[in-house]
Design a protein around this nucleic acid. Structure first.
Lengths: 200, 200
DNA sequence: ACCCAAACTTGCCTGCTGCGCAAGTTTTCT
DNA sequence: AGAAAACTTGCGCAGCAGGCAAGTTTGGGT
């Protein structure tokens, strides 16, 4: 307790490091051999931990592979939370997405290439969906706060966040198929505008 | 070749029967013991086939459990296809949903109870998502036909069908939580109207 | 009516997986 | 420094997907 710091402490930092290196190992191997020709054991090996430890961090390969996506999405959720609290829900979501995707120019091409390779594989479709589903609850909670009492059962909040994410997902999928045609944000921004017209 | 009939033939009928009885067995056992306390072997036994045969029909328990959902969704897809071909996409989807859900009064209460029980279980969330994902492609294809040349990359088609399904999913989830408050179709119809405003 | 090919079922088998448990190690707290 | 809490690891087990090679059933041609 030397300094009144917010630092996570050694234990937490180590855990984060292990989790990250498991994710990276999974990604590397998936790229090299194809996502369905890798075993949990191989991932654990590559990351320098035991197979059993892998299980302490991720429930399965897919979860490890998509940990990167989770991280990015959590970043975006933070941006949503950082928007002015009186901003209407859909506006806040769009603005956060614009900050996140738009203002960094194009997406990191290496990440794009990797992601495309992974996403191509249909065996991972389920995992991808789940990745978005996890996010949905988190965003719905934030949206719910902005809507206040006008949305008793939370239908609207969930509808808005689900639509928001589904729009991002579709845009990303389409863009990964035809990356040359536009910027990702050109596509996503337009789609968001269109889909959001009902929630303005 | 006795009669120019469209009948599927004995072989196909037997297969359909087996598939259905595997699904029913899975559902029955899941209700009785809880979805994660049943083994593939038990399901196969209950349905009167070998464990190996189960694998010839479904890739895993979840797929079997959600086969009912797939069936219902395929019915709805057929209704979409049956709509007049010049009807705008979102209108056709809403109308099909209205036929499917609205006009049969309330949903079958037994089915509701079963579904709620199954859906409650978080271990099945992935399977549920996949069920909807499968549908998405099918509906997108139909929508694509209605949009014609105005949607080169298929963004709009996918956006519309994804939004449509996500709206149904959210409505269903909310309604299963508070079934007493409204009819399912009251909820879903209103949500569809709201979400669809961007696609009119 | 018969036969053959294609389709389907089944048992056997293998490599992989998720997870409970308990012993050993590292970090944290006081 | 020393005890408590958290984490890693090996071991072991039940369960699972799916290849393979008999057997059995179905369908079409003759």
């Amino acid at each position: 307790m030397s300094v009144p710091t917010t630092e996570p402490g050694l234990r937490e930092r180590k855990k984060a490091a292990t989790r990250l290196s498991l994710y990276e190992a999974a990604f590397r191997l998936a790229l090299e051999h194809g996502p369905d020709r890798i075993t949990v054991e191989a991932i654990a090996d590559e990351a320098g931990v035991s197979r059993r430890t892998f299980s302490n961090y991720f429930a399965n390969k897919e979860e490890a592979l998509f940990y990167g996506d989770r991280l990015r999405m959590r970043q975006m959720a933070d941006m949503v939370r950082a928007r002015p609290p009186d901003e209407p829900a859909w506006a806040a979501l769009s603005a956060a997405a614009a900050e996140f995707y738009g203002e960094r120019g194009d997406l990191d091409p290496e990440w794009t290439a990797r992601t495309r390779l992974i996403r191509r594989h249909p065996s991972l479709a389920a995992a991808q969906m789940q990745s978005f589903a996890a996010m949905e609850r988190e965003i719905a909670a934030e949206v719910s706060g902005r809507l206040g009492r006008s949305d008793p059962r939370g239908v609207r909040a969930r509808l808005i966040s689900a639509t928001f994410l589904v729009t991002l997902r579709v845009s990303l999928t389409v863009w990964l198929e035809h990356p040359a045609d536009t910027t990702f944000w050109d596509l996503a921004g337009e789609s968001l505008a269109e889909a959001g017209r009902g929630f303005a």
